[in-house]
Every structure is written in structure tokens, then in C-alpha cells.
Design a protein around this nucleic acid. Structure first.
Lengths: 217, 217
DNA sequence: ACATTTATGGAACGCATTGTCAACAAATAA
DNA sequence: TTATTTGTTGACAATGCGTTCCATAAATGT
């Protein structure tokens, strides 16, 4: 976390959060490796040493950017998973909001998390772990929704909740990747819409009658 | 293309294709930006100048690597789309082979094409176009299979072939992304298997495509 | 044999990049 | 005021990067 207040000494002349937002845009557009500190310095509009003093080195700055991105940009899609009672509708809304996020022309292309995943391997270990944790958190949130839906009878007991959760995470990531290369945003909406056809209805084709034994994972 | 034969002069002491394969591994593991020429020189085991003489600069080498990767590694999954008559089985096999490719522990993590998508924006324009063309080619190949299946009556006439093709491309990309971060390869097989549940049967359950708030095409 | 062509090895160049330093400025606490 | 703490500034060091050059080695054609 970046400290934002000091009781003694000269106060900061720039807004930390605004600087972080600007840095986010640059990293998002160009990627971690390809972004230079000089670019960041110029974009943020402060001195080089001030940037280092406030955030540490490039890796620390990027980690702060990732954290802020998670709170600022992925909140709206993720919220659908807890706001909406019906599990199918919750996930559909999550996907649509994700697509809207990816299609927003005011923002850089793709998803910063997904972009960072592709870079993992060449980059630092901490960055990879950070992003991997974010994705794992998403899978878990989706899994909770689906499992609750199964308990409440919206899904058949034969549905594989873990596989479904993994599938919708994969769909979201696929959309993010396509959004990076496709100028036409209709692709990602096609993907979101089509993926909902994989949703298991309770009366799945001819499986045995549900047992009362709680199973899963 | 790289010339491999010369009638006059001293013959090359290394195998061009083997060098390209080694370079592929390095780029694949570390990414284009993060890979240095020194690493490539060391990995290939030849001299710096020889590498430049044979392939040109870093970008040209990477383009050669991309071309070779397309032929060497994506051929087997793609071949399923033309080999197998039944459209559903063709796409399912394509996905499974893709998953097998991604799960192969002898190979670097992820898919080189998918990994390279990130470089679009930070990297060169030619690389972006190259990768985008590859993805567009995949979408088209899948589209052909689905459309043929529709003509031959395997799919209902109400199926949206374009959306389906985009969906399965997105699934493949999502799998490639998950393969980068998940140590457990069961995730990608879950994704491949679950995505086939979105396949439209001829006697689709009455309602046709699910409704989705907001936009489409 | 000689001239020509190409590959090799190692050093070197020019430049970009990350990160740091010491001096100066501006605030608070006493 | 004075001391202290902290932010700002511009320049600078240190390193690593992609790329090229040059002398040498090894093949072919005449």
C-alpha cells in the first residue's frame, strides 16, 4: 500500500491516486515489459525521483497498479455474482459486464489481468502470483454462485460445478484475449451469449433421478 | 523465408531449423520483449553475428519463429477440423488436441500465438498483424466446419454459425490463458469438455438462443 | 594455385533503460 | 526563529540492450 499522508515535512504536490490511474493506463496499453519508467514519468507529469519515492521501483509500482485495477475496474462485473440471486442470471450479467468493460472504447484494449498473464514467465514471480490469485478468486466466486444454485435446485445434481466455474473463467479470459486483437466488439458479445448455452438445465437429457446425497468436488 | 542453401562459400555449421526450434522455445517461455538476443545466442549455441546473418534482426527472427510455430505446433489441432467429417466431433477433437498441446509438460506454458497477442500494442505492428491473421484464420476454419454442418443438417437452421465459431475460438484462447497460470491441467480439459455443452442440437429446446440483455451483432 | 563467397568469433558501438544522489524547497513542531 | 522532516529537481551512474564491424576460417569455381 502507498502511504498518502504525512504529519511532518513537505506535502506531496501530486495526487497519488491520479498518478496511479495514469500509470494504469500506460501499463494497460503497452504491457509491463514494454513500458519504460521514462514513459510513466512523462505521462504522470512528475519528476522521476518523485515517482520512485512514492511507489518504489517499477515492479512495486505495477503491483500497486494491479491492486488498484482490481478494485476500480473488475468490481462492477464481479459484483453481479453477489448482487443477483438467480445463478444463471448472475453469471450471464457477469459476462455481459465483462464484455462491456472490454468493449469500452475509452479504455485500453483488453483486460490488464489477462494481459499480465500472458507476460508471466518473462516477468517477475510476484506479478505472476498476484495475477494468478486474482483469477483463482474469480473462479471461486463463480463456483460459489453455481454451487449455491445447485443446492437451491436451479441446477441438476449431476452438474459439475467446478468444471462450470472453470469454464466461465476461461470464457471471460478468452473474451479478454479476443478483445485485444479484434476491433469489432461484437465478437466478445457473441462469445458471452453463446457460452450461456452451456448452462445446465435441471432437466438434463435423461440422467438418473437426483439423489439426496450431497456430493460434489 | 530463410535461405538454407548456398552454392558458393563456406557452408553453415549449424542447422537452421534446429536453431529456429531453440529460439521458439525461448520466445515461447519468456515472451518477445523479455527475451534478449544474448539469451537466444547462448541457447542456440552459435555466434551472435551468425544468428543475425541467418535470420536478420530480432523482429525478423520472431516472425520466422511464429511461422514455424504455426506449421509445427498448431497443425495437429487444426487438422482435426478438416480430417473429421462430423462437425461436432471435429470441433471437440480440435479442442481436446489443443488442450493436450497446452498440457504437454515438455513444452513451455501456454500458446505462442496467444502469448504474442499481448505484444500487440507494445510491440511491432507486423507481429500484431501476423498473430491477428492467425486467429482470424482459425475462426474461419471453424466457421467453415460449422456452416458445412448446418448445410448437411447436423445443426438447426436457427444456429448462429458465426457466433459459434467466435465462441470456440474464444474458448481455445481462454484455455491458452488458463494454461499459463494453472499448474493443474485438468482445468483446460474441463473448459474444453464443458464448452461442448453449448453445441446446438438440431432439436434445440424450443427457445432457440438464450436472450441476453443489450446488444448483439 | 588463386579469387570469391560465405560463416565465424569476439570485440565494440551507440543508445535506452532502471535506479540513485546531493542540493534545494516547503511544510510542521518546538 | 530554528530544527526537522519530507517532497522535488535535474543530472548522473551503471548496466544491459540490439546491432554492426573486422579479421579470420572454410568452402567453391576457374
Amino acid at each position: 500500500m502507498i502511504k498518502n499522508e504525512a504529519t511532518r515535512g513537505r506535502p506531496r504536490e501530486f495526487d497519488v491516486d491520479a498518478a496511479l490511474e495514469t500509470a494504469t493506463q500506460v501499463f494497460w496499453r503497452k504491457g509491463y515489459e514494454a513500458t519504460t519508467m521514462s514513459e510513466l514519468v512523462e505521462a504522470v507529469g512528475i519528476n522521476r525521483a518523485s515517482l520512485y519515492a512514492a511507489f518504489g521501483d517499477k515492479e512495486a509500482l505495477f503491483l500497486a497498479v494491479l491492486e488498484r485495477y482490481g478494485k476500480e475496474y473488475s468490481q462492477r462485473p464481479m459484483a453481479a455474482l453477489t448482487e443477483i440471486a438467480d445463478p444463471r442470471e448472475a453469471i450471464e450479467t457477469f459476462l455481459v459486464r465483462t464484455a462491456e468493460h472490454l468493449a469500452d472504447e475509452r479504455l485500453p484494449r483488453g483486460c490488464l489481468f489477462a494481459n499480465s498473464i500472458l507476460e508471466s514467465g518473462g516477468g517477475s514471480e510476484r506479478i505472476s502470483r498476484n495475477v494468478a490469485n486474482g483469477v483463482a478468486g474469480l473462479e471461486d466466486a463463480i463456483y460459489q454462485v453455481i454451487q449455491r444454485g445447485q443446492r437451491e435446485g436451479h441446477l441438476g445434481l449431476d452438474a459439475d460445478c467446478r468444471a462450470l466455474a472453470r469454464f466461465y473463467v476461461g470464457v471471460a479470459q478468452g473474451m479478454a484475449l479476443i478483445a485485444k486483437i479484434s476491433a469489432d466488439s461484437s465478437s466478445i458479445f457473441d462469445i458471452a451469449r453463446t457460452s450461456m448455452a452451456a448452462w445446465p438445465t435441471r432437466a438434463a437429457r435423461g440422467q438418473g433421478q437426483p439423489t439426496l446425497v450431497g456430493q460434489s468436488l
